[in-house]
Design a protein around this nucleic acid. Structure first.
Lengths: 134, 134
DNA sequence: ATGAATGCAAAAACTTTGCATGACG
DNA sequence: CGTCATGCAAAGTTTTTGCATTCAT
């Protein structure tokens, strides 16, 4: 269950749209939802929230670190709850299925590579596009 | 120098717009150009090519394997010449600078991870967001 | 009460498409 | 010459913004 205190902590007023959107992200079956997905889910649930608000709120949630925005291939962004831990993604090009994973070896190498170039790692984005072995 | 034979090989007629766009990608300072970038560069060079054509041609080039399309964070796609070898990217969040790199250890781990999940790797996308060490 | 949040509709940013004209082979 | 490519403008998508109204504190 998502807590309203998370909103307060983020300096966001606890409004109905924000609470509903947060719950939707938490309870909907899909781990990764586009703004449109969230909007449609809210409509079906009888909640009257504007699409513009969904975009605004998701952007605020991202800024607050409550959700993470992903730009997988294919035009539209998807969001997922920032359940604490970081992870990367594997996307099946045939089914669209998304699998989350984390690999310590890769994480470690990334930091090393960046350091070798005189930088520090701020963030990273790794998506593996895969297909079921035939 | 980019060869027209590459176009023929790809089954594309050798037309002025296609040649110019290919040259632009090859000779422009930027390694990664958006459709808009290519269009503006062509305008400045006095070439009269429509933006729609730039999009169409870049899409054809991608299908032909002549260029690679990247969906970095931030709305618009960028293209780069497929100079043979694959590589990943490091983007400086302060300056926008893009550094290309390839790490065998990471490449290897990716294949292993995917295999462990019963998939085969079709493609992947790794972007490290970095900052100059302060 | 008062400043922030919302909803709507309009606009913006990026990309694709329809169609008549023009160019390649 | 026939067909494919182009240019323009119009339409599509996804996301953002202006503004009057409503809501949280």
């Amino acid at each position: 269950m998502v807590e309203n205190s998370e909103l307060r902590k983020a300096g966001l007023k606890v409004t109905l749209p924000r609470v509903k959107i947060l719950q939707m992200l938490d309870s909907a079956g899909l781990r990764h939802m586009s703004a449109e997905d969230v909007y449609k889910a809210l409509m079906e649930a009888g909640e009257d929230v504007g699409l513009a608000t969904v975009y605004r709120v998701l952007t605020q949630f991202e800024a607050a670190g409550l959700v993470v925005r992903h730009n997988f291939d294919g035009g539209h962004a998807v969001f997922e709850l920032a359940d604490g831990g970081h992870h990367d993604h594997m996307v099946c090009v045939d089914t669209g299925e998304v699998i989350e994973f984390i690999d310590p070896a890769i994480e470690k190498r990334q930091k090393e590579i960046v350091a070798e170039h005189g930088f520090e790692l701020v963030d990273h984005n790794l998506v593996l596009y895969v297909r079921k072995k035939s």
